[in-house]
Design a protein around this nucleic acid. Structure first.
Lengths: 143, 143
DNA sequence: TCCAAAGTTTAGCCATTGCTAAACCTAAAC
DNA sequence: GTTTAGGTTTAGCAATGGCTAAACTTTGGA
């Protein structure tokens, strides 16, 4: 392949991955938050999900339907939200990534406030390789 | 404010910022790429932009209209794409952020391939505070 | 028991960012 | 100077993820 074409292909792959990340990260944010609410309060209500995500109630209802189609959550009308097994896996995975990134930023010397906000945005765009490097950095620093 | 409400407010702020980032990052990707093409090839054509971003030609045309409305680019029909002063500023800013993040990942020991891909996703979600910390880390490491 | 407040859902709207297919220019080869 | 290949634009469609307003349940207090 000519170098110019190769460059374009490599670059477009990065952009494509970013776009793909965006479509899956919302689902992860939802299940992660639902898992947190269940752990914290014993149940997750649409109301509270909307409040924490900063969106309207109706938006949550719509997203929950999509998540049900994807087999991540279950819900009876007017009842609280449950996670399926797959939903729990995704949530756990998200929390793990989130924790690693946030911890990494804190170890790097970032303020708690900023670490919280930045990790929320960064979390979904970090490859396993980078995640491992972050872990390594934290444990080396702590030692 | 009660602690629970405060928590929800803090958290929703993070999500809101992430959503806001998403709407502006596309514009930055476009102008950044256009700037690169102008520097590399002397001119930026819609064709090449589409190829590198991995989207259809028509998508680029549509986005360019939005960017023109925002005063970031100019273009005569069937001609090459130019950046306004504001467009150049945004591009420069994007390149700076991008370079810092990519460099940081490389310094952390990430492979070139992964650093390129991850930096593309991360770039738009990194606060100034974190950016500074990344710079600090790189220069300390290099010393 | 009934009623009102709070939470949930539905309906219908909008903007964004993709796409394909077809029409349209431009420029280079002949 | 035509022709034609390749780049550009238009038109029209789809999915996503927001919103408000109005209708509907649930639940707890009077």
């Amino acid at each position: 392949m000519p170098t110019v074409a190769r460059k374009a292909k490599l670059q477009s792959a990065a952009f494509k991955r970013t776009r793909a990340d965006h479509s899956s990260e919302l689902a992860e944010d939802y299940v992660e938050l639902i898992a947190d609410l269940i752990d914290e309060k014993g149940e997750a209500r649409g109301n509270e999900v909307a409040l924490r995500l900063g969106v309207a109630n109706a938006t949550v209802v719509k997203m929950l339907k999509k998540l049900m189609e994807r087999g991540l959550v279950t819900q009876e009308p007017y009842r609280d939200i449950m996670l399926t097994g797959e939903g729990w896996s995704l949530a756990e995975n998200g929390r793990r990534r989130h924790d690693i990134v946030e911890n990494f930023l804190l170890t790097l010397g970032i303020s708690a406030e900023t670490a919280r906000i930045d990790s929320e945005g960064i979390e979904h765009h970090v490859s396993d390789e980078t995640l491992k490097a972050m872990l390594r950095f934290c444990s080396r620093k702590r030692a």
